[in-house]
């Protein structure tokens, strides 16, 4: 694979609008790109023989509300080239007002459930996803719990659960039966 400087030149030429930068931390390269251009970038990384990242290891997201970043959310793709055992990270940045980016499902089917998870927990939407619905939380749930503005102990969604009172052990049943 190309080193960092050459990769920057190649990608800046190929994606003049979407490309933001390439960072390196602990020998791992991260490509930063605007959300709407991510599918084109992923397709290039998968099909271009210079890269040949044939395996999508994982999709997740980070909420940058309390941390510096290019936008509020970044969707993180971990790619793997199995022939050379190389990895690269792609970070697609989306804004808070319109958290939407194209789905990676046409390239890898594993994107199906993992994008549903990101949608459920972060509220980032994926266009052209075959079946975008919540996966962990129930369908009537209103919030996205892994966002930083959602408190650790919840917003009291579980406070109105029905409480079953049992009188066994504390007192004997009266003639009317258990209370």
């Amino acid at each position: 694979m190309l080193p960092k400087d050459q990769l920057t030149i190649v990608l800046r030429e190929k994606f003049p609008e979407g490309f933001i930068e390439i960072t390196e931390f602990r020998d791992m390269l991260t490509i930063h790109i605007r959300g709407e251009h991510v599918l084109k970038l992923l397709r290039t990384l998968k099909t271009d023989p210079r890269f040949a990242f044939n395996f999508l290891s994982g999709i997740t997201a980070v909420d940058h509300l309390e941390m510096e970043g290019h936008a509020r959310f970044s969707v993180v793709y971990h790619l793997l080239n199995q022939h050379e055992a190389r990895r690269i990270v792609v970070r697609a940045w989306v804004h808070e007002e319109e958290p939407r980016l194209p789905s990676a499902y046409p390239l890898w089917k594993t994107a199906d459930w993992q994008e549903r998870e990101v949608y459920d927990l972060f509220g980032v939407e994926f266009t052209d996803h075959p079946d975008l619905m919540r996966i962990m939380n129930p369908d009537y749930f209103e919030y996205h719990p892994l966002r930083k503005d959602y408190p650790l102990q919840g917003r009291g969604e579980r406070d109105n659960f029905k409480v079953v009172k049992r009188s066994i052990g504390s007192k004997w049943p009266s003639e009317k039966g258990f209370e």
Partner: peptide
């Protein structure tokens, strides 16, 4: 299968984000 933790740090004592790459979830999706 492949199990890994994706840890993002903002320089504080706790991780900013911890993500598990869960082999069970990804295998089950097939």
């Amino acid at each position: 299968g492949e199990l890994g933790y994706f840890i993002v740090s903002d320089g504080s004592r706790e991780p900013y984000r911890v993500r598990t790459r869960p082999p069970s979830l990804i295998n089950y999706s097939a």
